[in-house]
Write a protein that binds this DNA or RNA. Sequence first.
DNA 1: GTCGAGAATCTTGATATCAAGATAAACCGA
DNA 2: TCGGTTTATCTTGATATCAAGATTCTCGAC
Lengths: 162, 162
Amino acid sequence: MRDEVDELIEAWARERSDLDLGPVSVFSRISRLAHHVDRARRHAFTTHDIESWEFDVLAALRRAGEPYELSPGRLLRETLVTSGTMTNRVDRLATRGLVERHPDPTDRRGVLVRLTPEGKDAVDGAFAALLDAERELLTNLSTDDQTTLAGLLRRLLVPFAG
Amino acid sequence: MRDEVDELIEAWARERSDLDLGPVSVFSRISRLAHHVDRARRHAFTTHDIESWEFDVLAALRRAGEPYELSPGRLLRETLVTSGTMTNRVDRLATRGLVERHPDPTDRRGVLVRLTPEGKDAVDGAFAALLDAERELLTNLSTDDQTTLAGLLRRLLVPFAG
DNA sequence: GTCGAGAATCTTGATATCAAGATAAACCGA
DNA sequence: TCGGTTTATCTTGATATCAAGATTCTCGAC
């Protein structure tokens, strides 16, 4: 079965038979998959009246466990955005009542962002919907294939750790 | 070897042992890899005074082959952006002299975007740099592993074709 | 031929993001 | 305890993107 990237690579091969296009077969697929999955995710969240960026923040707080509290700095490292973006996100989530800002008792420069009960309900509902949608996308792969794939992706991701 | 997503999944498992987190192990890695690769790509392009979005458009024209000409509609489907975005991109590339707009002789609604010689040089140089950078990221994988990975990713991507 | 549905492109307005800089507090060596 | 460096957060200004709508043209049915 052919995909969009097969065509892309054939086109390149016609024009530049001198190049090794191996990297393209991996990274073009990763980029394009990320784009499509992003759309699917956004769609899964519409039912739950939540946006992808909101989920990313709420989920980081949720999986941190009780008392569902992290600093903005920690949140921006978890979600791969810049500090300005995180300030803006927390502002808007606080306006919606899904998180609250509290002063960090151990560091007067610091702030702790805490999930409200409403935020916890929202993220739990959205996460269930997200898992359902993503499972749907995996139907073409056996459980073993999924494990293999996750393992190979991990090996690409390790160098970016920390 | 552990990666960022292993920690993310362990955190979720601590909080929600009732959920099957299989999909996360695949799609979280794909999203995060896309983000990191995007940064690496941007960095590879800085030397060539070109931006990622510029490369995406120029590359689509380049691999189309002589006369390096595609419609805006075709370009936006290749690069997964909306029509407003493509209008803006072509405007800026034309200002830089890397592409030219020509009327489509067979359809008076239509336009053809054509690569200039400067645009061709720019994209060929940038592509070489991109392949080098991406090859670097693949050093942890054998050729066989890369083939396996590309094959598994293809099976995820096929449903999005068309 | 004419009309209406659909297609191709561009325009507009709103928005989220980033990079760089500002501010304030903690830390640490002398 | 003082001063300089680092850390944490927020602010600012510029920019790229998207969604929705406007415009212009094509094409087939009748």
